[in-house]
Simulated scan of single mutants.
Amino acid sequence: MRRFRFTAFVTSLLLAAALALTGAVAAQASQLAATGGYVALGDSYSSGVGAGSYIGSSGSCDRSTKAYPYLWAAAHSPSTFDFTACSGARTSDVLASQLTPLTSSTALVSVSVGGNDAGFSDVMTTCVLQSDSACLSRIATAKAYVDSTLPGNLDTVYSAIRAKAPAAHVVVLGYPRFYQLGTVCVGLSAAKRSAINGAADYLDSAIAKRAADHGFTFGDVRTGFTGHELCSGSSWLHSLNLLDIGESYHPTATGHSGGYLPVFTSVA
């Protein structure tokens, strides 16, 4: 009986601590919403390509009301919300056309960028249409770019963000793995699928390293998408879509609400 009571007492303490922590996180989010603005930068994985419900005024940038930045802003009501992420953006595009809303009063910034610099679209085109060897060769070229050039490009973007928004908490979002392995999957060979996943990991590792070196927080979405990759039977990613090729290999609306949003919310 004493052991039971002691266990129940400890359980109660742990539950109270968890509730207090949850309250602290909610209070922090409320404070952020009240004291500063939120700016969402980046490429199609932030603009919401593949999620539908695109904002008409965003044009070819395809910003979606179902993308994780829009969902977070709707839930937390920051004092200002500027959504400049754009489909197809590279690091140079972020620098050239997305940073204007950043100010000394910006409290929160999110950004996903680097995939287009590394040639993600061409990698997928090559792997879908050509042989295993051609796919692996193109991935090797992308990895070489990630080693040699991408870190400097990311440094330039991250330094520009910090210079324009010196007080902001900056969250850098990564990319998911695309395929569940070890399952029967029509289309790409197992070798291609494994290599594509490996390339995603390689890119995420490089981005996470540069983010950490700038004092930014890296939001790793790979765990959230586990069990929801292509070939899983419960995918949060579009496969090749010949009717809307731009949506191919991008998160669905559920991928944003169930994959990206929880990760961003946990570190914002």
Rank of each mutant, 00 (worst) to 15 (best):
249 Y>G: 13
141 T>I: 03
203 L>C: 10
149 T>N: 14
28 Q>M: 10
210 R>N: 07
69 P>C: 02
264 F>K: 09
191 A>S: 09
2 R>Y: 13
132 D>A: 02
45 Y>I: 13
264 F>R: 13
121 S>P: 09
69 P>E: 14
123 V>W: 12
228 H>T: 04
237 L>Q: 03
228 H>L: 05
268 A>E: 07
106 T>L: 08
120 F>H: 10
225 F>S: 02
48 G>V: 02
54 Y>N: 01
36 G>T: 15
233 G>C: 15
164 K>E: 06
40 A>F: 15
52 G>S: 00
242 L>P: 13
161 I>P: 13
3 R>G: 04
25 V>D: 10
79 S>V: 08
146 V>G: 05
61 C>E: 04
241 N>M: 05
230 L>D: 02
108 L>I: 05
186 V>D: 13
145 Y>S: 12
24 A>F: 12
222 R>H: 11
25 V>P: 05
137 S>P: 03
22 T>V: 12
19 L>G: 09
101 P>G: 04
154 L>E: 11
24 A>C: 14
186 V>P: 08
110 S>A: 09
18 A>S: 07
19 L>P: 01
206 A>R: 15
170 V>F: 12
122 D>N: 12
44 S>D: 13
14 L>G: 11
36 G>L: 09
42 G>L: 04
109 V>A: 09
66 K>L: 14
188 L>R: 05
226 T>K: 08
91 T>Y: 01
35 T>P: 00
66 K>G: 01
27 A>N: 02
122 D>P: 00
190 A>I: 08
64 S>T: 02
3 R>S: 11
248 S>I: 14
11 T>S: 11
13 L>P: 00
114 G>L: 13
9 F>S: 14
82 D>Y: 07
182 G>N: 04
155 D>T: 12
19 L>Q: 05
29 A>W: 08
254 T>V: 15
203 L>P: 07
104 S>T: 13
148 S>Q: 14
160 A>W: 04
250 H>V: 06
135 C>F: 05
40 A>K: 11
66 K>S: 12
170 V>K: 14
24 A>M: 15
33 A>W: 06
85 A>D: 09
165 A>C: 11
51 A>C: 01
57 S>E: 06
11 T>I: 15
254 T>A: 15
221 V>K: 01
46 S>I: 02
162 R>I: 07
163 A>P: 01
248 S>Q: 12
94 V>P: 01
51 A>L: 00
67 A>R: 00
190 A>R: 11
264 F>D: 04
93 D>L: 04
244 D>Q: 04
138 R>N: 12
29 A>S: 08
112 S>M: 03
